[in-house]
Nucleic acid binder design. Structure first.
Length: 202
DNA sequence: CTACCGATTGACT
DNA sequence: GTCAATCGGTAGA
């Protein structure tokens, strides 16, 4: 990953919708005991600090969501059924918003991702929030990890970024606030967690 | 302590 | 498309 720039705290110290959109095309990297795993982020979701009943922070701070109330740029990782989901905390400390990483395109370490995911298909490796955590060996041990350190688990801007066709849709799998278009996708990616439906142009 | 419930996934009709 | 496995977190008795 020569030339990739580690994303600093100020990148995350903004509103979650901006961070979610700008994370598309960035890199997720995990140095898993010497094994480098990386992928290009293609799908994210924003969870707001206020008036968002779908957010884990909506009903206040608990043991599980403590990270959301901490500094921006730290990981918030929680268990969902048999899987984990990785979020990045956004905005100022004490403003409990975050961005869920929903899908990436694997770049490095695929040879260890395939057996972990028990699939032979590239597009099934990391095309979902639980799938990518399983492929990247991310669990609650990394909850509250500062992703801005450039070691262990971190995010970076690639050497060169191309223009991305960003599509916003409602978030996946939630039962409240379903109308808000807070899911952001790279429309050209084959690794999205769901198909994009034909867009209605204005 | 018990009961309920998913920001999911994979198997199946 | 539908459905449930599965389990930690949470609230409440």
């Amino acid at each position: 990953m020569d030339g990739a720039r580690v994303l600093p705290r100020q990148f995350f110290d903004r509103d979650p919708m901006t961070v979610a959109r700008e994370l598309l095309g960035k890199l997720l990297l995990h140095d898993d005991h010497g094994q480098l795993l990386s992928g290009r982020i293609v799908e994210t979701e924003a969870y707001l600090a206020t008036e968002d009943p779908a957010s884990h922070s909506y009903r206040g701070q608990t043991l599980r969501n403590t990270a959301m109330f901490g500094p921006p740029g730290h990981a918030y990782i929680y268990a969902m059924h048999r899987y984990y989901c990785l979020n990045v905390v956004t905005e100022g400390e004490g403003i409990p918003s975050a961005v869920l990483l929903r899908a990436v395109e694997p770049l490095q370490g695929m040879e260890v991702m395939f057996p972990r995911r028990s699939t032979a298909r590239y597009v099934d490796l990391t095309s979902g929030p639980g799938k990518l955590c399983q492929a990247f060996a991310i669990d609650r041990a990394l909850d509250q990890w500062a992703l801005t350190q450039g070691r262990r688990l971190w995010l970076a801007a690639p050497m060169s970024e191309t223009v991305i066709d960003v599509v916003a849709t409602p978030r996946i799998g939630i039962t409240s606030a379903q109308e808000l278009p807070l899911r952001f996708c790279d429309a050209a990616s084959a690794c999205l967690s769901r198909r994009l439906y034909a867009r209605t142009l204005p």
